[in-house]
Write a protein that binds this DNA or RNA. Structure first.
Lengths: 145, 145
DNA sequence: ATATAGTCTACTATTTCAGTAGTGTATAGG
DNA sequence: CCTATACACTACTGAAATAGTAGACTATAT
């Protein structure tokens, strides 16, 4: 039951973008510097985020990325799914690939994993990037953990 | 956001053990045959389950494994944790290793990941092996998915 | 023009996972 | 006491995914 750095990087990068885009496109260099993430790696990550429509890119000098939608309509789930692929707690239930294991009919466990998957998915979809931005703002005045 | 086969195997194996232990110790061979899991791999898995106190072992002919506690006091979370290690959605928040990333103070994301972790953990701890056994029993009479 | 900054493909190193091999040890049943 | 059974333990292997790197290419603001 693990989340990889890819998902974490994605969230941090999106948060940084959301917080800085008012000053113009946010470059990978900026994100790399402020978030300690390899610039090249971010390049690949933003490919995914861009394909998912979560950011748009602007090329050339002063270029970078802007959010592709309003921050309140970008759910954390959408970011994680864009970065890591579908949230699947159990692969043989994966819808996209239709890879359903042959034991399906006799296995109660499947139902359980499907419930877990929905539970996690709902949680991730119930917060937006805006919610996290607000949290970040609050943290600047109050005491950090 | 993935669960590995290790966790799934563990749950299926525990369920099989719970359902069959009334006829005496359940051998790895039996579990291997009924659940299509490599016997050698199960051996390693049951090491973990045994260390966690979820099963006890009986050696020699007619030997095998019995549940280490009543099925209603074995939570699914306990099984997953025994098999896969602590449920951590983000490693730098991992308590056991004290590996906290240096960005902790400035990162709102951490709070979010910790909430997610708790959310998942609570879900996994709210069902017991007994609950799943009941589900399995029901499924025999009713129509499978 | 040119420097900046995204785009794209390919490569590499590391880690984890799933599974295998083989040896050792306890014990039920004859 | 012998022997077959079944757990215990260590070490190894192959495959896949992850994290990160290299370098050439393209668009564009100044």
């Amino acid at each position: 039951m693990r989340m990889t750095t890819r998902g974490r990087y994605a969230l941090r990068a999106m948060l940084e973008t959301a917080q800085c885009e008012k000053d113009g496109p946010v470059s990978l260099k900026h994100i790399s510097d402020t978030q300690d993430i390899s610039k090249k790696y971010l390049g690949k990550l933003f490919d995914r985020l861009k394909n998912a429509g979560l950011v748009i890119s602007i090329r050339g000098p002063k270029g970078g990325y802007l959010l592709g939608k309003e921050p309140d309509s970008i759910s954390i789930g959408a970011i994680i799914r864009a970065a890591e692929g579908p949230i699947t707690t159990v692969r043989c239930v994966e819808k996209s690939t239709n890879k359903r294991c042959s034991r399906l009919k006799k296995c109660v466990c499947h139902l359980y994993w499907e419930k877990l998957e929905k539970h996690i998915s709902d949680f991730l979809d119930s917060s937006s990037l805006l919610d996290l931005c607000k949290g970040a703002k609050d943290k600047k005045t109050s005491r950090p953990i």
